[in-house]
Design a protein around this nucleic acid. Structure first.
Lengths: 203, 203
DNA sequence: CCGATATTTGACCATTCGGTCAAAGGGACG
DNA sequence: CGTCCCTTTGACCGAATGGTCAAATATCGG
């Protein structure tokens, strides 16, 4: 179909539609639960038309995962070694929570992939992700040794930030069911999580 | 098939096998990803034989969820209002972590169900689960008001315990990939999480 | 050992699903 | 207008899947 270069207006529009529909369906149903018919319907395209733009169901899924990883790790990358330790960490927590709040579909897509054993990105986790986390863990460890943050294992500290922030996206139904009506989980979560990590991290 | 009463030895054995195989397969592949053939193979039974003991794929899944909920909330139920607040809370954290460590399949089954919007147990969440959490949240709030625990929103405190403990079961691949070889995630997690919540909760 | 009942299975079915293909429709440009 | 290429689609295919059924086999009490 398309050349290697210069995607047409229609191509860009339809690819975008497909990816958005794919994100909806994959994040709601998982890879196995999603169907091409479902994605096609959500994108207002016919099934063969989908496969004109992407060679397979898996190709759509992979494209989504690739896009996802780019932005998903930005908050951690943005951690500034030259900044004030506690403020930097709390800013990271806040960025991660905002990301989970504004992109819950992406969060659930990622969670589903990891839950199933990360068949599509096992490698990325143990290379790129590990390298980034190791690097930032060193920064955090430096802050701790300098007495500017409370002592903890930096890797597990990062895990705890991931766990807490993504919980509100991935387990949204449970959170809402338990809180009951009249609560805004995200507003409460931001206040509580920041207080939480202030206590954990303040030296 | 079976009468209402007195399941035979064979019935008990095969039901048990099917549930165990179902737990394996459902927790690894999700409800949609699991197949009756897969479960049958894992249980060393023929597919029609599966359906002799359970009327449908969904029936197996529901049976697993029912069993699960029983034991999954025991740690929270065991929270003793008459105990020492900090010790009670840390004991709860420890119980929850042990449960995640020893029953990771159950944890992932539950996580998958919630991730997909809890289609099979939406009601239970907003009735039974909510009632239990509200009740325990009251106990915790009492402790906080008495100055025996640090101030926090009890509901979100419970969420944070769930999030942190289950993270190590549900995101196991990611945790291992990031830590790299030579680490025992569970050993490290127990130490870190207890230190973590000690800082969060100590008055 | 016999008969009744419980258990097991091979063969089969309808539906769903991912994917193919040839042909039709549209837009841009000379 | 005509032509070339991009886009769209109806019809179709093979494999997988949840589930059925009638027949075969094992088990057990008497």
């Amino acid at each position: 179909m398309a050349k290697d270069e210069a995607p047409t207006r229609i191509q860009r529009r339809n690819r975008e539609r497909i990816l958005s529909a794919g994100l909806d369906v994959f994040s709601a149903e998982g890879f196995r639960g999603a169907t091409l018919d479902g994605i096609a319907a959500a994108a207002n395209l016919s099934k063969p038309n989908l496969l004109y733009y992407f060679p397979s169901k898996e190709a759509i899924y992979r494209a989504l995962l690739d896009d996802l990883l780019q932005t998903w790790l930005d908050p951690l990358r943005a951690l500034d070694p030259a900044g004030a330790p506690l403020e930097e960490m709390l800013a990271y927590v806040r960025r991660k929570l905002i990301l989970a709040r504004d992109y819950p579909r992406e969060s659930r897509l990622f969670a589903g992939e990891i839950l199933r054993g990360a068949p599509h990105l096992r490698d990325v986790l143990s290379t790129d992700l590990k390298a980034l986390v190791d690097d930032r863990a060193d920064v955090i460890a430096g802050w701790m040794e300098a007495g500017r943050l409370a002592q903890a294992d930096p890797h597990h500290l990062i895990f705890s930030i991931w766990a807490l922030t993504q919980h509100y996206a991935d387990f949204d139904v449970q959170v809402r069911a338990v809180l009951g009506p009249g609560h805004d989980p995200w507003v409460e979560a931001e206040a509580e999580i920041l207080r939480h990590f202030t206590r954990v991290l303040a030296p």
